[in-house]
Computed example of a mutant assay.
Amino acid sequence: MKTFLKRTLYWISMPIRVLWEFNKGFRLYYLRGLRWGEEELEDVFALLILEDYIGFPNLPVDLSYRFLPHMVREMYVMQEKSLIH
């Protein structure tokens, strides 16, 4: 009787476990996509702020100075990427 109960509970809980694992995998895939999108937006933001370095006309100076504290991390990331390639 005990093994029958265990086996029954196992088969009843199987769809729940499958859906739980599917949810974990989907969440991981979704978060990875969000992280990639965030990195791309940060790259575009850095390009807009530091576009003078690549020859495009730059933003007004007062606007660039307001964004500069937010760009410290981006400058480190861009430096690391340029050293890798």
Rank of each mutant, 00 (worst) to 15 (best):
K24S: 05
L68V: 05
L48N: 02
L28I: 07
M78S: 07
V18Y: 11
E74I: 03
F56E: 15
Y10K: 15
L34T: 01
R32G: 05
L50R: 04
L48S: 03
F4M: 15
K81M: 00
Y29I: 07
G37L: 11
I16S: 06
L63W: 06
Q79W: 01
T3A: 10
P57F: 04
L9R: 05
R35V: 01
L47F: 13
F22D: 11
L47V: 06
M14C: 09
R35N: 11
F45C: 00
K81F: 00
L34M: 12
E39V: 08
R35I: 00
E51W: 06
F22S: 10
F45R: 01
F4D: 11
L59V: 08
V77M: 02
L19Q: 12
M75N: 07
R35K: 14
F67H: 08
E38W: 11
Y53G: 06
E39L: 14
L34Q: 10
F22M: 11
T3Q: 12
Y10E: 15
V18K: 08
I12E: 08
H70L: 13
S82A: 13
T8R: 12
R27W: 12
W11C: 09
G55H: 00
R66A: 08
K2M: 10
L28R: 09
M1Q: 05
P60R: 06
L31K: 13
R35P: 01
G25V: 05
D43N: 04
S64F: 12
W36N: 08
V18I: 15
T3G: 06
G55S: 02
L31A: 05
R66T: 08
